[in-house]
Structure formats: C-alpha cells, structure tokens
C-alpha cells in the first residue's frame, strides 16, 4: 500500500510522462485480457519516462516552476523543522481569536545549539491534512500568533526564522471579519521594530500579502524552484487578461522566479535544489537550508540591534524602480 502511495505525482508539464504512464497501464490491462507477456515493452516505456523527466527539469518555465513549488510532496515547514533542528517545541495560539491556526505554525527550536524561533506556513501532507491546514492559507489568527511568537523571541534574544509556503492569505468571510488586512499590516510594521536577526526563506509558494505577512527580515532566501509573487498567476490572468487560462503568460510576465527576484534586488540568496526538485531529495535540501541559515545567522549575530534594524529598514527602503525626471 505504501509503495503504491509513494508513486511519483506527475505535474501538468509532465504530460508526456502522464501519457506514458497511461500507456503502461493500458498495455498492462491489454496484456491481462489477452494473457500476453509485455514486460519488455513496459520496461522500455518506463526508461523513456525517466529520461523525459531529466530533460524537463533542466529547463523549467516560470509556470512549470510554480507547479514544482506547489508539488504535493514538496517538503513543508514541519518537515524542515524536523530535519534541521535538534529540539523542537511547537507553541500555539494568538491569545485572542479563540482558535489556533494550523496553517501557520511556530515554535522554539535548537539549531546547532542556538535556540531560535521558527515560524512557517504549513501545507498538508495529504488531502485530509490539507483540509485541516487550509492548504497553507493562514487566517488573521495565524498572523497574530506569528507576531506574538516573534515578540516573545525578541524578548529572549532568539533569532527568528520564517519559512514561507502559502498560496496567499485565506480569503474567507471569517478572515475578513477578523481583519486579515489589519493582521498582515500590523506584522509588516512590527517586524521592523524587532532587534533580533530575522531570516526569511521561501520554501515553496510565496503568495502575495499572505507571504509578506511573515516575510520582513534581514535576509530573504528562496529555493531554486520556489516562486514569490504579488498575486497568483491565475488571479492575475483573470484580472488583466480577463481569462484565467492565461496563467502561464501571467507567470512569465510577473517575474516570480528566484532568478528574476535576485535581478530585481528583492532576493538576497538562491538555495539550490536537487534535480527533480526539493521533493526528490528532501534531506539533502534540508541540509542546504540549514547551512544557509547558520551562515547568515553568523553574519547577523555580528551586528548590533541598532545596526540590524537599520539594515532591515534600508534593505526595503531601496526596493522599487522609477525614474526621476529633471523638473
């Protein structure tokens, strides 16, 4: 059963692969019906599939990267926490809205001896879990919990590590009623007040304000196939092209990949992924993250509180492209 479940999940752009898979099944069925041995043919088809995957992953378009970023098996916040920390105590609740948001998790971890506060969006590992986690779309309570934990970290001098992986902040009636806009806005301002180092990493999908709500830091890192976008390409296509099916064009136009964002001086560092994406070798990917976090923490720990706050201010202050015409 377990092996059947772990069969690779094919993405849209892997359609040729899906075709092959389908053919393999068809050949199987046909063979059973007619009682013929087709193992050689199946073997050939499977080889071709593996080759195709290699080809596809070496030249991903933005829309395809988006799909890798949203891959159901992509390592999530809690996967990374488990892989990189020596200790972990998850903490809950925003002390106000009467719930604990499972879509945004946080807690204290020990990273190579140093206690740190880790916060991140949490997508589900399967459908049931995803329903519980609301597909990683946090509610106002999630952002307020994050802020409470960040303030706690600040009081105890713990660096803050945020892991971003959300399609966007939850857009529901309850979220609006509880002030989704205010919750995110408040975090944007308050994160500039914190003295401790803050390192933000987009591990999967960086969706709009929902991502930025825990995305104000001294460093912004992104995994190679992660994306970070002002609006989901689907929403952007629906609004600007008046046609949701144009999302691939939108993904291209919005410049959502790590390379684009490095060029636009929004991103500080790209973390490489193994071929086939983070989900193909999660432990190796986690080691990459851990090393990058330790390196950056070392640098940030050399700075005074004042220097860090000023650095953070200037980092965002510089973002933006415009021209100044002379009178």
């Amino acid at each position: 059963m377990a092996t059947k479940e772990r069969r690779p999940i094919l993405l849209d752009f892997e359609k040729p692969l899906a075709e092959l898979e389908k053919r393999i099944i068809q050949v199987h069925a046909l063979a059973e019906e007619n009682d013929v041995d087709v193992s050689a043919q199946i073997h050939q088809l499977e080889d071709r599939a593996a080759q195709l995957r290699q080809e596809i992953f070496s030249s991903l378009t933005p829309a395809q990267r988006l799909q890798v970023a949203r891959h159901p098996r992509r390592p999530s916040t809690l996967d990374y926490v488990q892989a990189i920390s020596d200790e972990w105590v998850e903490l809950h609740g925003d002390r106000g809205t009467g719930t604990d948001d499972p879509a945004l998790v946080g807690g204290i971890a020990r990273l190579e001896g140093q206690p740190v506060m880790i916060l991140g969006h949490q997508k589900g590992r399967d459908t049931k879990d995803n329903v519980l986690r609301n597909f990683g779309m946090a509610s106002p309570g999630g952002y307020r919990k994050a802020m409470r934990l960040m303030n706690h970290a600040n009081r105890f001098g713990m660096p803050i590590i945020t892991l971003i992986d959300t399609p966007g902040a939850w857009a529901g009636l309850e979220a609006e009623r509880l002030g989704q806009g205010e919750a995110i806005a408040y975090n944007l301002r308050e994160m500039f007040r914190l003295d401790v180092p803050i390192i933000c990493t987009v591990i999967g999908e960086g969706g709009s304000g929902g991502a930025l709500g825990i995305g104000v830091g001294d460093r912004l890192m992104m995994f190679e196939h992660s994306v970070y976008t002002v609006a989901s390409p689907e929403a952007c296509a629906a609004i600007l092209w008046k046609d949701a099916s144009k999302s691939a064009e939108a993904a291209e136009a919005l410049r959502i990949t790590a390379t684009d964002l490095l060029e636009l001086s929004i991103l500080d560092q790209i973390l490489p992924e193994p071929i086939g994406g983070a989900h193909s070798a999660p432990l190796q990917t986690a080691q990459t993250l851990k090393q990058a976090l330790l390196d950056n923490l070392y640098e940030l720990n050399q700075m005074t509180n004042e220097q860090r706050r000023d650095h953070r201010y200037q980092k965002f202050r510089r973002i933006g492209k415009f021209v100044e015409v002379s009178a």
Binding site: L188, C236, L254, R255, R312, G320
Partner: peptide
Amino acid sequence: ARMQEGMLSLSQMAKIAAALER
C-alpha cells in the same frame, strides 16, 4: 498592489510600513 510591477509592488507595502514604524 499594481500587478504590472510584480514583487516590486508587493515590497512597497513593507517599505511604507517601515517608514510608518519610525
């Protein structure tokens, strides 16, 4: 946020919030 400027637009939210903090 203005979609035509992508992440540059989204980042303005934080930039303005930073100035308001001061």
